[in-house]
Nucleic acid binder design. Sequence first.
DNA 1: ATACATCTTGGAGTAGACTCCAAGTCAATG
DNA 2: CATTGACTTGGAGTCTACTCCAAGATGTAT
Lengths: 138, 138
Amino acid sequence: MKKISETFNTIKQAAEFSGLSEDTIRYYEKIGLLPYADRKANGHRTYSQYQLEAMIFLTRLKATGMTLEEMKHYRKLSEEGPTAIPKKIALLKKQKERIQNEVSRLLDTQRIIDYKIDHYNDILFNPDIDDSNCDPIE
Amino acid sequence: MKKISETFNTIKQAAEFSGLSEDTIRYYEKIGLLPYADRKANGHRTYSQYQLEAMIFLTRLKATGMTLEEMKHYRKLSEEGPTAIPKKIALLKKQKERIQNEVSRLLDTQRIIDYKIDHYNDILFNPDIDDSNCDPIE
DNA sequence: ATACATCTTGGAGTAGACTCCAAGTCAATG
DNA sequence: CATTGACTTGGAGTCTACTCCAAGATGTAT
């Protein structure tokens, strides 16, 4: 039932695939955010498809505002095996909530921007309006 | 037609209202992101309601991922007066688009998290599943 | 008058997340 | 066999956005 990918990639390919830079990948390994990568005979890193997906997942978590420390914590739980699954679920739910808040805030801001755009358009097409003191960022 | 607020606030109150720290407010003034604040006779800064709103607007722009430099640029346009309004509209639209992308990405990530939560729940309530190699963040 | 709080200034220090570099290894190509 | 290119390492440097500090001025309460 195991599915282990047989294609192995260089750090360059990993960078291309994940969107991380080679330096960043090495850096993540250095700080323990990515596991120590297997090396070829000559010492070069190799990555399986499976590890590439882990990188993608990391970039996604990061995109939600998770810090590297938090991601490390998550990874640590993964190492604990199945007993840590409830903790991981809790963490994921917390993160989901954070994203929800973030989205709300963004939509909120978008509304404010819309309001401002409208407002500026009013000024442009209706030069009578004098509100030189109404725009809270002059 | 002008509406100028008559209540003036200390930096402490400005911090409370805006959510920025006092240090951050001074810092923003120092780098030219906030205009040089009026001082009382003793040199202490004062802020009108109107300036407080400007701070709130800044925090909102910041929350959308704008850098301080970009916000400075926006403020500079405001100083140019009405002729810069089209530029400001363009900037706001660009930022709105960025927010839209950000929201899409977040919702995307939320879906991935949901998928993962489901997946872990499956494992918890269905211990037969062996996927020790299927979770791309071991 | 003395203590305390609240502010001022310039400048130094910090945290997080990279990003770059020098010196070296190894494999393939001309 | 010399060069080129892709990689390795440890460590230093950079950027952003704060955050903290020391020394000093002023205002208010006891």
